[in-house]
């Protein structure tokens, strides 16, 4: 449990947000060309990092906007919050 600084609403309790998992997984540009292995990689395989991870969050019980977050999963410390489409910060 922690406090998240929503880029649109400011600081709110984590229970207002929902996590969309690993960020920056690019949707396949030509889905019909994809092999089964590539589909599995896109749909299921995850880094599941213990440490600094880039992830997507949604302020579900607030502005309902999506944004990105850099968080250390070993201690839940948040390093950065940035809007969708912005360049990920170097941590």
């Amino acid at each position: 449990m922690f406090v998240i600084n929503c880029p649109y609403c400011g600081e709110r309790d984590q229970s207002e947000f929902s996590c969309g998992g690993e960020a920056h997984i690019v949707r396949p540009k030509q889905p019909t060309e994809l092999s089964d292995d590539e589909w599995a990689e896109y749909l299921f395989m995850r880094k599941n990092i213990k440490g600094v991870q880039f992830e997507r969050w949604n302020h579900a019980h607030g502005c309902r906007k999506w944004f990105n977050m850099v968080r250390d999963t070993s201690n839940d410390k948040i390093h950065a919050v940035y809007k969708m489409g912005e360049k990920p910060p170097v941590i």
């Binding site: 998992g21 599995a40 990689e41 299921f44 395989m45 995850r46 880094k47 599941n48 990092i49 213990k50």
Partner: peptide, 18 residues
């Protein structure tokens, strides 16, 4: 819960979230 951590050591990705 640490399966992915070990998998990463072998250069493998698993369909898991911890």
């Amino acid at each position: 819960g640490h399966s992915s951590v070990i998998a990463n050591m072998a250069g493998l990705k698993l369909p898991l979230e911890s």
